[in-house]
Design a protein around this nucleic acid. Structure first.
Lengths: 144, 144
DNA sequence: ATTTTAGTTGAGAATGAGTCGCAATTAAAA
DNA sequence: TTTTAATTGCGACTCATTCTCAACTAAAAT
């Protein structure tokens, strides 16, 4: 069975790296919720569970999770990078409320196709794409 | 006649600010080429033309140009923010080659419409959207 | 004309996210 | 048991960006 642990471990193996307790703890914490998260939150959550893992280790581990295709950088908001899961989640884009910070995920197959078509037109081989729409969510419009 | 100067000046006026020589020089330099630029480049270009304007002033001025709707943040690449013109240029999105750094601008009316539709669906009032596709450009694919 | 008032600037200090060097630690392989 | 190589935490460091502040406009008020 393919689990996030097995994916992570095999990626580490290809780089001659080990699945240490710290890396395992970070992996678990990352997948402990389904929310977007940033590094500072992750650090704090680990602390709250008594895991004293240094920021440096977290900063070193997240790129490994990204390379493993388990998570990805989702967007930036107020100069912080937010990450989200890939494992167990389909691709989607984001609406981001600039007033309350709410994040709405959406997925539009037609938009995806059109993006493909654009790439084809320019002979471009995409590896990643990101569509982010900033504005005001329903609640924040009505409370204005 | 509406010029970038008049737009900038009237925006400044609404905030009780003045169009100083420094701000004017920055405005001109920003529009001196049609390329994307980052702050360090702008600073260097001004220096090369003998204008010794401090980084602080540039950092203070760019947000004013953004508020004036003359320029906008286009994308981030290697932790640098790239800006581009709005004045005199239609909206477009970007293909960014992660090998050679080439930027291809594109615009797809259909994608724009679909984004509008998504916003409508969620009762979301968009103020800005950004679609960036990273990958390999034509040249970099064939040279691999 | 002189003074007030308020915005502006440059220099450098301060901030803060992210990175790096290093000595101590761990664990697998020999 | 020894060797070897990866790993960790700490704190120093970097680098973009922001802030502070004293000196400097320039327009408005007197």
């Amino acid at each position: 069975m393919i689990t996030k642990e097995s994916i992570f471990e095999s990626h580490l193996k290809t780089k001659g790296l080990k699945l240490t307790p710290q890396r395992k703890a970070i992996l678990e914490e990352v997948f402990a919720s389904h929310e977007h998260f940033d590094i500072e939150e992750l650090f704090a959550n680990l602390r709250n569970k008594g895991k004293r893992i240094s920021r440096a280790t977290i900063y070193r581990t997240l790129p490994l999770l990204v390379e493993s295709n388990l998570i990805k950088e989702a967007f930036r908001y107020q100069d912080k990078v937010s990450y989200e899961h890939i494992f167990g989640h389909g691709h989607h884009d984001h609406l981001l409320c600039i007033k309350c910070g709410r994040i709405i995920e959406f997925m539009d197959e037609k938009i995806e196709e059109l993006q493909e078509a654009v790439c084809k037109k320019y002979g471009f081989k995409p590896t990643e794409h990101r569509l982010g729409i900033k504005g005001y969510c329903k609640k924040c419009i009505s409370h204005e």
